[in-house]
Amino acid sequence: MTKPIALEGVYPILATPFTEQGDVDENSLRELVRFQLHAKVDGIALFGMASEMYTLLDDEKARIAEIVVDEVKGQVPLVFGSGHTGLEVAVQLSKRAEKSGADALMVLPPYMAKPDGKRLYDYFAAVAKAVNIPIMIQDAPLASGVNIPAAMLARLSKEFENIAYVKVEAPPTTFKVTEVLEQSEGRLTVFGGMNAMYFYEELGRGAVGTMPACEFPEVCVNIYQAFKAGDLDTARRTFYQYLPFLRIGTLPGSAMAVHKEILKAGGVIESAYVRNPNAPIDERTRQEALDTLKDLDLLALRWNEIKAAR
C-alpha cells in the first residue's frame, strides 16, 4: 500500500442536491462543494447516509464523484462511502471508489440480513484486501442495525494495515470512543458522527475529528480548531450554543430534509427535495429548525450575500 493520507478534522458528509423533479442538481452540487471549501473543512465525505446514498443510481454516483473531484481539485482529501448490504457489491463499490478518486473509504456493515461475527469479519476483510487506500469502518448501529464490537475493530486493525479508522456512531459515542482507542492500542484513529452531537466530548476522549451533515461546516471547524489550540472555553461554548440545532438535525425520517432546508434557505442549493423513503418537513418543523439558530451566525444562511460578492 502506498503511504496513506492522514485524516483528521472536519469531514462533512455531502448532501446530494436534487431538482424539484428529483434529478441530481449538478449546479447545486458544485455550489455545495464550494461552500464546504469556503468553510475551510479538512476534507469532504460523500455517499454517506446524509448523502441519501441508498437512493442513488450507479451512474448518478459516478457523475457525482466526477463533479466533486473536479471541484475539489486535490485541495482536501475525499472519503467515499462504499458499504453495502452484500459483500460482493461492497467490494465492487470500494474498487470503483478508489478508481474514481477516493483518498479513503467509509464502509458501513451489511444492513439487510444482519451478519453474525464470522460474516461481519469476512465482509470487512474482503474490502480491505480489495483496495490500497485507508478504510474507515462506520460503526452506526442505529442506521445499520449492526453493532460492531470494539474487540472486532481492534482485531481487524491488527490484521489489515489499511483498516485504520473508525467512525463511532454507537450511542453514547463517548464510551465507544474510549473503548475503541484502548482496545486497538493506538492502531485505530477515531472520528465522531451522529451529526456532531457529542463532538466536544469526543475530542476530549481522543477522537481526532467528526463527520457530520454539511450545512454547518464552519461551526465544527471552529470547535475543532479551538480545541486543538487549547482554547477549551471557546470550543465548549461554541459547541453548546449550537447543540439544539445539531439535535434537530437528527430527527428520524426528516433529518435529510432539515439539512437541505437550511442549505436552501441561504442559497447554497436550489431545492430541499429528498428522495423516498425520506420525507419533506412541514413549515412548523422548518421554523423550529430555524429558531434554534436565532442570535447565531450560520454561514449557510449568509451564502447568498457571499455569492453576490464573488
Rank of each mutant, 00 (worst) to 15 (best):
Ala128Ser: 03
Pro109Lys: 04
Ile67Ala: 03
Ile137His: 08
Met112Glu: 14
Val107Lys: 03
Ser82Arg: 06
Ala90Thr: 01
Ser82Leu: 08
Glu71Trp: 05
Pro115Tyr: 03
Tyr54Glu: 12
Val41Leu: 04
Glu60Ile: 00
Leu108Trp: 11
Ala65Ile: 08
Tyr121Met: 08
Glu98Cys: 11
Asp42Phe: 00
Ala150Gly: 12
Gly145Asn: 10
Leu87Pro: 04
Lys95Ala: 11
Ser51Pro: 07
Asp103Pro: 08
Val79Gly: 07
Val127Asp: 02
Arg96Gly: 06
Gly86Thr: 13
Leu105Trp: 02
Glu71Pro: 05
Val107Ser: 00
Val68Leu: 00
Ser144His: 00
Glu52Ser: 03
Asp70Leu: 10
Ala90Val: 01
Val41Ser: 01
Met49Trp: 12
Asp70Ala: 15
Gln75Thr: 13
Pro149Val: 11
Arg155Ser: 15
Ala130Glu: 02
Leu87Glu: 01
Tyr121His: 12
Asp139Pro: 03
Ser94Gly: 08
Ala143Ser: 11
Tyr123Ala: 11
Met106Trp: 10
Ala140Trp: 08
Phe124Lys: 05
Lys40Ala: 11
Gly81Ala: 07
Lys61Asn: 10
Lys95Ser: 09
Ala104Pro: 01
Leu153Gln: 09
Met112Tyr: 15
Arg155Gln: 15
Val79His: 12
Leu108Cys: 10
Ile148Gly: 05
Ala151Asn: 13
Ala151Ser: 13
Pro134Val: 00
Leu120Arg: 04
Leu108His: 08
Ala62Glu: 12
Arg119Glu: 15
Ile64Tyr: 05
Leu105Asn: 06
Ala102Gly: 01
Leu120Lys: 02
Ile133His: 13
Phe124Ile: 06
Asp122Arg: 09
Met112Asp: 15
Thr85Val: 12
Met136Glu: 06
Met152Arg: 05
Ala113Asp: 11
Met106Phe: 09
Gly117Glu: 14
Leu93Gly: 11
Ser82Pro: 03
